[in-house]
Design a protein around this nucleic acid. Structure first.
Lengths: 205, 205
DNA sequence: GTTGAAGTGGAAGTCGAATTCCGCTTCCGG
DNA sequence: CCGGAAGCGGAATTCGACTTCCACTTCAAC
């Protein structure tokens, strides 16, 4: 139910016209357009209403019938996974950008702030983080790897306490998303996190 | 659906034998016993599995039929509300205990730690906090009032930044519950919160 | 322009969980 | 110990999603 492809395009192929080597037929133009519309509509719908939106609402929003949804994604979950994958990819980019910054403490703070900001703008993202960190699936390897480095470097310069593991950080981001889902005050929350995460050395000797 | 009572006992009456003035008959002894069993079973079930437990599981756990559940609570939601109410009552007591402490900073910290600890021990509580702060319903007046005082006092001594409102704090607790639901490291999270919430005075000049 | 493979819409089917119903059982006042 | 009101169990019903199906439309190669 989560593995193999089924209809027009495997949900793992992310581009509009995934003309991979060996694909017998490139997918009809209008179909590709519809697939894109569905993805957009789904993203918008999840962003506004969270994961409880119904397939029919997404379909209406995209201006297609439910049948078309199911042609492209065998399952509601598959559709969600597709979006999750895209979000994760974006997150990996952000993490890479942070990793390119010279100061580890600054990089870490920037990543947290940026993530909080993105969450505030997208309820779907919030929910997904809740899920992902919620245990339904783990942080994808690519992202976990980046996060690990980010965290490690920050730890070395004392910007993050030593007893915070990647999975703790993951849980913390889950908490952040839950908080932000309730109030849009992401700046406050991000600041709190960054401060609270700092190693608890005696304040002022 | 949320207002009027229906069967044996209105879900608002919390005691086992709510022989309020005017109640024609005090409720049969075995019925009261069953009601209590149901409540216990429900609490345990929610604590273990979160809010997605099925009515039948609760019934089995309590050793009764689903009919008995519905005799006592017109709706699954009503049952949840009843438990939520009880949890909230406990929380008010905790808050009161905190309020009786002399040092506001210490009181605040103690309340946060205690809440985190309780959350760690009860997935049901966690979930409920998520819901309650999630907007489905607001913090009950009684608790909001206590929290407000706790927060205000802590603010005055600089243990909490000035720009944190009660509703922010509520959101933060929601986040805390989400984080704790994933890892049991409540001590770490509580410490982080307490530190992060502190007024951001310049560290060490 | 024709043709048939690909794609479409949305009514109908399925399925799981909440809720209802009712004949049988258990209390308890007299 | 009896009668009948109160309570009980759990099979049957309802309800609201997701998912399937298929007659019909659209595209694009020839």
């Amino acid at each position: 139910m989560t593995t193999t492809a089924q209809p027009g395009q495997p949900s793992a192929a992310r581009s509009l016209r995934p003309v991979l080597a060996g694909a017998p037929r490139p997918m009809r133009g209008d179909a590709a357009r519809n697939r894109a519309r569905v993805l957009d509509a789904a993203r918008a719908a999840f962003a506004e209403d969270g994961a409880e939106v119904q397939m029919e609402q997404i379909a209406r929003r995209a201006g297609v019938g439910v049948g078309t949804l199911y042609r492209n994604f065998p399952t509601k979950q598959a559709l969600i996974n597709e979006l999750a994958q895209r979000w994760m990819d974006e997150r990996v980019e952000i993490a890479d950008e942070a990793l390119s910054m010279p100061d580890p403490a600054e990089a870490f703070g920037w990543f947290v702030r940026r993530t909080a900001e993105d969450m505030a703008g997208d309820a779907g993202l919030c929910h997904m983080f809740g899920e992902v960190s919620g245990g339904n699936c783990d942080l994808p390897d690519l992202l976990a790897e980046r996060t690990d480095i980010l965290l490690e470097r920050a730890r070395e310069v004392g910007a993050v306490r030593a007893d915070v593991s990647v999975s703790d950080f993951q849980a913390i981001l889950g908490g952040l998303s839950a908080a932000i889902a309730q109030t849009e005050k992401w700046e406050l929350f991000a600041e709190m996190l960054i401060t609270g995460l700092r190693a608890p050395a005696a304040p002022c000797p």
